[in-house]
């Protein structure tokens, strides 16, 4: 894996369970077995125009996880002038494995956790391909 900083940003959308799944995937990616390789920042910092957060993005490889086609996380990053290395849209991942349909926004349930794992795997595979 290369030495570039990796930042993953979920949309955390408050209208759908997919927003919570995006959060869960970010948790798994930043905390579960991936050590110091990935970190996250608060997406609202970009809305508030926080320059420190924007500067971090400019030095990083940025992954976004969006819960709906409005792709807020991706667009917010792009509006800072930073390119997104990979954007993941949760419903597209679910379409590949419909057994992992999440529960509610307040409790995504075990299938939602599995869907989050699917997302993590997609990002790790992309990272692996990039390094080869």
């Amino acid at each position: 894996m290369s030495d570039a900083k990796r930042v993953v940003i979920p949309c955390s959308g408050i209208g759908k369970a997919f927003g919570t799944v995006a959060r869960e995937a970010t948790y798994q990616l930043t905390k579960t077995g991936n050590g110091e390789d990935y970190r996250t920042i608060c997406l609202p910092l970009l809305v508030a125009g926080d320059q420190k957060a924007i500067n971090l993005l400019k030095q990083s490889r940025v992954y976004t996880i969006d819960g709906c086609p409005k792709k807020c996380a991706t667009l917010c990053v792009e509006r800072t002038g930073v390119d997104v290395a990979m954007e993941v849209v949760v419903p597209k991942i679910l379409a590949k494995n419909t057994d992992h349909k999440p529960g509610s926004i307040l409790d995504i349930g075990p299938n939602g956790v599995l869907l989050a794992k699917d997302i993590v795997n997609v990002i790790l595979e992309e990272e692996s391909d990039r390094d080869e």
């Binding site: 949309c11 955390s12 959308g13 408050i14 209208g15 927003g19 997406l43 609202p44 970009l46 809305v47 409005k70 792709k71 807020c72 996380a73 991706t74 667009l75 917010c76 509006r79 926004i105 307040l106």
Partner: peptide
């Protein structure tokens, strides 16, 4: 609040939509 306490009296929007929308 949105789902349990005041579901008929409230509305929301995802904060990032202000920048992305």
């Amino acid at each position: 609040v949105l789902h349990n306490l005041r579901p008929d009296e409230t509305a929301t929007i995802c904060l990032p939509l202000f920048l992305a929308g």
